[in-house]
Each structure stands twice: as C-alpha cells, then as structure tokens.
Amino acid sequence: MDKTDIIASPNRLVWAGLLLLALAAPFLVGFDLYLIHVGITISFNVALATSLWMIWSLGVISFAHAGFMGIGAYASALVLTKLGLSMWYGLWIGAVISALFAMLIAVPLMRTRAVYFFMASWAVGEVIKRNFAYFKDFFGGWDGVFDIKPPVLDLGFLQIDFADRLAYYYLALFFVALTVWIIYRMNASRTGMIWWAIHENELLAQHTGINVFRQKVVCFTIACTLVGVTGALYAHYQTYISPKSFDIWKSEFALVHLIVGGLTTVGGPVAGAISLTMVDEALRATGYFRTIFFGVVLIASVLLLPGGLETIPARIRRLFNRKSKE
C-alpha cells in the first residue's frame, strides 16, 4: 500500500502508530527491566485475547483457551527437557499438537450451544489442566516443568541470546504482531464474513449453504493453534510452567480483556488487553487491594462504558459533532 492509502484510512494509521510505539517502547522506558517484563506480559495477553476474539466471531466464548495455551507450552517445554530440541522446534510442535487436540475436541464440543458451550469448554480446559497435574512422571504434576531455556538464534555472523529480556520482548512482539495480523486478515476475508454470519444467525447461515459445523471446527482449530504458539513463547519466557499457570482464571481474564475492550472489532481485545494489563500492574503495589480494585475497574467499565474501549473514538466524534452544531 502506498502512503496516501495510509492517510486515507485512519484505522491503518492507528495500527501503524501502535506498532511504532511498541517498537520504540523499550527506548522510551529507558530499558527498565521491570517495564520490559510488563511489555512482554502485555504481548502475551494481547495474543490470548485476540485469538479468543476469533472464537467469539462464531458467537461463543471458549473457557478452554488457557488450556490450549497450556498444551502448546507443555509440548514445547517437554520437547526441550526430554528431547533436547530448542524452542525453534518446540514452537511448531506445540502448535501442531495444540491444533490436533483442538480439532479432535471441537467435533463433539461444537454440538453444544450458547451457555452450554461455555460450560462444556470449561470442562475441557479443566480436564486438560488436571491431566497435567495428575500424570506426575510425564508432566511433573503440580510442581510443573522447570528449566525451560530460552532459545539462541544463530545466524552465523550474529548470535542473539533470547535469555536477554530486551531480545525476548522483540521476539514476543513479532509473534503477537503476526497473530493479530493473521486474525485481522482472516476476519476481513470471506471466511471471516462466513463466521460473522454464523454469529448473527446460525440457522440462516446453514440455509444459505454454509457448512456451519465445518466452519466452526476450522475457526476453533486456527484460534487454538495461534494460542498454542503463544503458550510455547510463554513457557520459554517464564522458564517454569505449572498446571496453575493455565487455569480457568487465565481464560476468564482474557474474556474480561475482550469485554472491556469491545467485542465487534479486533481493536477491542487489543485495547482491552493493553489497558487492563497496565491497570493490573499499576495496582500491584496495593497488595491485598489489588484484586478488589481490579474488580471495581471491571464492573465500572462494563456499566459505565457499554460497548467497551473501542467505542471511545465514536463517542468523542459524537461529542465534537454536537458541539459544532451548537
């Protein structure tokens, strides 16, 4: 696309600005290690929330999302600790295993609808987590898997060790940008429109010749693959994972990011994940009050800002229009 195209569409301008800001962020915060850590956490949360939003384009919310993140993370971690292969292999193995499981589970899971889907997917996520905890010899039980080394990129002339936090930030940023871009493109494509058609009216979609069941399985599988990659990145960043890292709360917070951000465009989950992760980290100093404040912020944003953060530009525009009329 050429330059005029960017200026013509304000959305692209915002996306480009956001990406530039994310690229420049470590310089802006003066390479503060804690703030870079916050940046990496934000990246993971954005990937989690946007891929959950992709499932939402079918009209359902999956509570098994953190579970599939766990599958990617465990697969990649075990490939390293048992087979000695680095993350460059583990990432793709994790994605493939996550995709296979997602496809197998989606076939029975997609029979359920609406509220029942929430709960059935919740059961799936919980069984995944409990299995990690139960098979102690293979998955390490509740103690989890230790010593998951970050990878080293050897280009011959240049060696990048991703144990360095700054390097990992850019790695995470690359994959998150890729995830968001894939989801954005899928959503704008014909397939994305088919998913929104299913979201609006499943019966009608079926009658216009859409294979609803197949589309649902495909969408679920793609979203779970993307979150599996995120899980692998998460495992190699934290260097330690346990079943507790992938419990229902993780899926619920991804849902909260979605709702606070807004449900109709991909910008919603991105905005929600960025702002709420920041709020959460800012409240860290308040100790016990952290969860209480977070709850208050959550309720207030749902009740006072229906539609989420993504409606703010439209609200501001409306405000100016009203003023110019007067």
């Binding site: 709702i259 016990y288 969860t291 709850g295 912020v297 959550l298 309720i299 749902v302 229906p306």
Partner: peptide
C-alpha cells in the same frame, strides 16, 4: 436483555471484590 457475557463480567468483578475483601 444484553448479551449474557456482560453479566458474566460483572459477576466476575463481584467475585474479585467479595473474595478479596473477605480475605482482608
């Protein structure tokens, strides 16, 4: 009358507030 997700989010906030202040 709104989507069921909104009530889920609000009650999730309630869980955080009540169990957090309960511990305090």
């Amino acid at each position: 009358g709104k989507n069921i997700l909104y009530s889920l989010a609000v009650s999730l906030g309630l869980v955080l507030i009540i169990s957090g202040s309960g511990q305090l």
